[in-house]
Nucleic acid binder design. Structure first.
Lengths: 187, 187
DNA sequence: CCTAAGCGGAATCTCGGCTTCCGCTTGGCG
DNA sequence: CGCCAAGCGGAAGCCGAGATTCCGCTTAGG
């Protein structure tokens, strides 16, 4: 594979991640190509259909999330703070948006992508462990779980067009409210 | 106006409210017509364009919300419980969804509709009063407002396709979490 | 310098939804 | 009861957005 081709490949995946975060998994191929600074033809040559592209984007995303989680857990001793940090990181514009976008998509996009499934499962598992640790430390309610965290992140960080403008303008405010509600004793 | 025509008019507005709640303000006219048990022709004769239909739906909605709020406030003595009740009512499937749908829409849909604007303002004012009462009673945080409540309702009750499936399945759970976060002392 | 890998983007195709239009139906008056 | 205009439904044609193909031009790199 020629050097420039390889470079474009990377750009395309990044662009796809961005655009899908902003406009959903169904974002027009042309928009993705434009963002990547590439012609649609190139996009199609590399990824024969949308699913192929999605799988690539999914890999990209899962690894980024996993790395951020580990970083957050390493930076502070208590689990509750680590969760707070991770949430802040994930809430940065257009970040978890991708999670929401990917959540929308049909399973068949990943069939035969065992590595992706494994990475995803691993990430969720580590998040879950962190949550359980926070609960054991007495800082988090027992009746909420890692899933709730993920869902709410997805909700508040999905692309701005899909949220009431004030929420889109400051999702952090609402995520903090959510965390306040998840703190031990809040129920 | 003939009796059957009047009947259809009512059905159309109701159907439009339902369908727009589920599929957004841009929901296909044909879907609305079908739900109303009416031909598209009838729809277009009555409402020459989408804006006319939206205005009618908006009226419908604002009045329903105002009535529910007053009912909730009348049923229990303390403001916090009243808010809880109202939120529960508004979170019933496809209810506030309409609010979210209407929130999306451009101002020009309502220009020249003073009565609608007035009704809307009145409703918000009453909700705000209730929130301030809850704060005075010491049951609600000072740093949140009626707006936050409205936004959160919109977020969690928008049509299911736009939410992670588990959230769509039980928006009440997440709204309760958010309310827990808004309770006095939660910050 | 040459050549095949790689590229871009115009052209074409498809699909979903909007809007119109006209022949049929029916409320309700005389 | 009979008439006829108000009202109805939905097929037909229009349109724009996006997917996908294709081919002549560009350029990496041996």
């Amino acid at each position: 594979m020629r050097a420039d081709a390889r470079r474009n490949l990377g750009r395309i995946v990044e662009a796809a991640a961005e655009v899908m975060a902003e406009r959903g998994v169904e974002a027009p191929m042309e928009a993705i190509a434009r963002r990547a600074g590439v012609g649609v033809g190139t996009l199609y040559r590399r990824f024969p259909d949308r699913h192929a592209l999605l799988a690539a984007v999914g890999d990209h995303y899962v690894h980024a999330m996993a790395a951020a989680l580990d970083r957050a857990a390493g930076e502070v001793p208590d689990a509750w703070s680590a969760i707070g940090r991770f949430v802040s990181w994930a809430a940065e514009p257009g970040r978890a948006a991708l999670a929401a976008a990917l959540a929308e998509l049909p399973v068949e996009a990943y069939t035969g992508r065992a590595s992706f499934a494994r990475a995803r499962a691993g990430w969720l598992e580590r998040l879950d462990a962190l949550v359980r640790r926070a609960q054991a430390e007495g800082s988090m309610r027992q009746d909420v779980g890692a899933d709730d965290l993920v869902h709410l992140l997805n909700v508040f960080t999905c692309h701005p067009d899909r949220l009431p403008a004030p929420v889109a303008a400051d999702p952090g405010r609402y995520l903090r409210l959510m965390l306040d509600g998840m703190r031990a004793g809040a129920g």
